[in-house]
């Protein structure tokens, strides 16, 4: 009996003094059963995602301000909606806008909000480049990168769930949790960046998304090559939150080859882009 209590003590001590071991459900993904896979999205989840995305979008607009230039807004929306027609999330209404800043970047908020900075547009030379950037951001939304990371979903309304909540006790009010999640989403966009595999998925997605919509997916490569030369304050956030350009360019080229895309047969719309840029002040 004494031996048993010593054992108990040792075990507790061992567990408390453990090195930085992380919860390993993620380390051993093969343990995961299909039932634990992200459940099918419900209509309520979509609504919750949009509600969340609006909050993030309002913060982005609060930070940079909207670039109010109707012809340019229209052009960006036309390019965006051309891509959105080939989105795999028809439940979302995509919104496109330009942020009034010389910083070079683009942002996506869950629920379909896509923002491109004026600084980024200034660096572009054809429509396929703009399409590439929009498609990349669309990839973050369609891949639900923020939604999955922060577990944004509607609260379950079933009786069993209600009972379980009652037993489990909701310590954190839903409202605080929501605001905290918005804070975290902003951190992702401005400080920590998406997970590396999410960026890769968005880049790969951009290639396919552009190709199916008829845009040359190499536009994104050209854009990257150009902005990788630009150093300084305008790309500070972008550089901090994204993987190195060389690696991304290689990956994009590989994706184009793998999907056997004939870039020459696809459109860059250089003239139409130039025409649209004239409206810019």
């Amino acid at each position: 009996m004494r031996r048993a209590s010593v054992l108990v003590f040792l075990l507790v001590l061992m567990s408390v003094a453990m090195p930085d071991a992380v919860m390993s459900a993620d380390d051993q993904p093969w343990r995961q059963r299909v039932s634990a896979a992200p459940p099918e999205m419900t209509s309520d989840d979509v609504t919750e995602e949009i509600r969340f995305g609006r909050e993030v979008a309002a913060r982005l607009l609060g930070r940079y301000g909207l670039y109010a230039n109707d012809p340019l807004t229209k052009y960006v929306n036309l390019v965006g909606q051309s891509l959105a027609a080939y989105s795999n999330r028809p439940e979302l209404k995509y919104h496109f806008a330009v942020l009034n800043t010389s910083e070079i970047n683009a942002y996506a908020a869950p629920g379909g909000y896509i923002f491109i900075t004026k600084g980024a547009i200034d660096k572009m030379q054809d429509e396929s480049e703009l399409a590439g950037v929009i498609a990349h951001e669309m990839g973050h939304i369609n891949g639900k990168h923020v939604v999955k990371e922060l577990d944004i979903k509607a609260t379950e309304g079933s009786a069993a769930a209600g009972l379980a909540r009652l037993i489990g006790g909701g310590t954190e009010s839903a409202r605080i949790a929501f605001s905290k999640a918005v804070d975290k989403a902003m951190d992702t966009l401005f400080t920590t960046g998406y997970k590396r595999e999410d960026e890769i998925e968005a880049d790969k997605g951009s290639v396919m998304q552009c190709a199916v919509a008829g845009y040359d997916p190499a536009g994104l490569i050209r854009y990257f090559e150009r902005i990788s030369a630009a150093k300084g304050k305008s790309t500070e956030v972008l550089d901090k939150t994204h993987p190195a350009y060389d690696a991304r360019i290689i990956l994009l080229k590989d994706s184009i080859t793998a999907a056997a895309i004939d870039t020459a047969a696809l459109k860059t719309y250089k003239e139409r882009f130039a025409e649209a840029m004239k409206t810019k002040k």
Binding site: A57, G62, A68, M186
Partner: peptide, 11 residues
């Protein structure tokens, strides 16, 4: 951390 709902509605 300001929120711009006006701008959001325009978008």
């Amino acid at each position: 951390d300001r929120l711009d709902y006006d701008g959001l509605e325009r978008v």
